[in-house]
């Protein structure tokens, strides 16, 4: 099945222009719930009410207002659209950077690009060149009326486009209140913890990790339907202060015996490479 593209436009770098279409590269598999009232399960409806008149206001009567502090400025939908800028149908690659220099914290929502309208050949040239150079294109484009900073790179055999966070959207570590311990961990503790890390070191195999909570919630729903009691979650046990004893027990394999650590699904039949 061929998915529907969510955006059509042109990718440019230098004077090269490639007609492209955009596909979402992800799908959420979380369970989707409705908002209801706890007491009787009544569905919740969101009503927009005028503060002064107390009347319900229809969607098409809504407008956006910006609070200036001394009053409000109203912008119509057409006026708001002017914030898209003069080139809403372009993905403009401004320059390239070495991919390994970009911390993953900047990466946000990923998409795949496809070629359209005779652009497939140029698309393949760019894809090959990006693969060979290891560079990531940095550019801008407008999605859903909002200009985004984006990174362009090869992804799963296609061109991937991922929106990027702006530097000022990240909260620096310096804003966090650090709490240093009065007493540093001892050399022995550091050594043992290091051993534990080495014991748990492995390769990153994304397919090995599956969502098991979804199933647990489905079981819970089944239990509730049958009117079974749900046992409340037990109270949390506080962490013990004996770091050394906990480390020792961990290295003795205490964890495995305590929790009967399950083998990850698919651990035996590792795939050679991610899809």
């Amino acid at each position: 099945m061929v998915a529907r593209s969510i955006w059509n436009g042109t990718l440019t770098f230098g004077t090269v222009a490639i007609p492209v279409k955009l596909f979402s590269a992800t799908e959420s598999r979380g369970l989707s719930f409705r908002e209801v009232r706890a007491s009787d399960g009544a569905r919740i409806q969101h009503k927009r009410i005028g503060v002064e008149s107390g009347e319900e206001v229809a969607f098409k009567e809504l407008e956006k207002a910006y609070d200036t502090g001394t009053g409000q400025v109203i912008l119509t939908k057409e006026e708001l659209a002017a914030a898209e800028g003069p080139r809403p149908k372009l993905i403009e690659i401004e320059h390239f950077v070495r991919g390994e220099l970009i911390d993953p914290v900047f990466y946000d929502k990923p998409y795949h690009l496809g070629a359209r309208d005779g652009g497939a050949h140029a698309y393949r040239v760019l894809l090959d060149a990006l693969e060979r150079s290891g560079r990531v294109g940095i550019g801008r484009f407008v999605l859903r009326s909002r200009e985004q900073l984006v990174a362009l790179r090869p992804l799963h055999g296609a061109l991937g486009l991922q929106t990027m966070r702006f530097a000022d959207e990240l909260v620096p570590a310096s804003e966090m209140e650090r709490r240093e311990p009065a007493k540093d961990p001892s050399d022995r503790e550091v050594r043992m913890a290091g051993k534990l890390v080495a014991m748990l070191a492995d390769e990153w195999q994304p397919e090995e990790h599956r969502d098991t909570y979804r199933e647990a919630v489905m079981d819970l729903i089944a239990a509730k339907r049958e009117g079974r009691e749900i046992a409340p979650a037990p109270r949390e046990e506080e962490g013990d202060d004996d770091l050394l004893a906990a480390l020792e027990a961990s290295l003795d394999g205490g964890k495995e015996s305590r929790k009967g650590r399950k083998a990850m699904p698919g651990k035996g039949d590792r795939k050679a490479k991610g899809s």
């Binding site: 908002e35 009544a42 009503k47 005028g50 503060v51 002064e52 008149s53």
Partner: peptide, 11 residues
């Protein structure tokens, strides 16, 4: 230009 508030009501 009156302000709008969103209220949650039982459907």
């Amino acid at each position: 230009n009156e302000r709008i508030e969103v209220h949650r009501v039982a459907a």
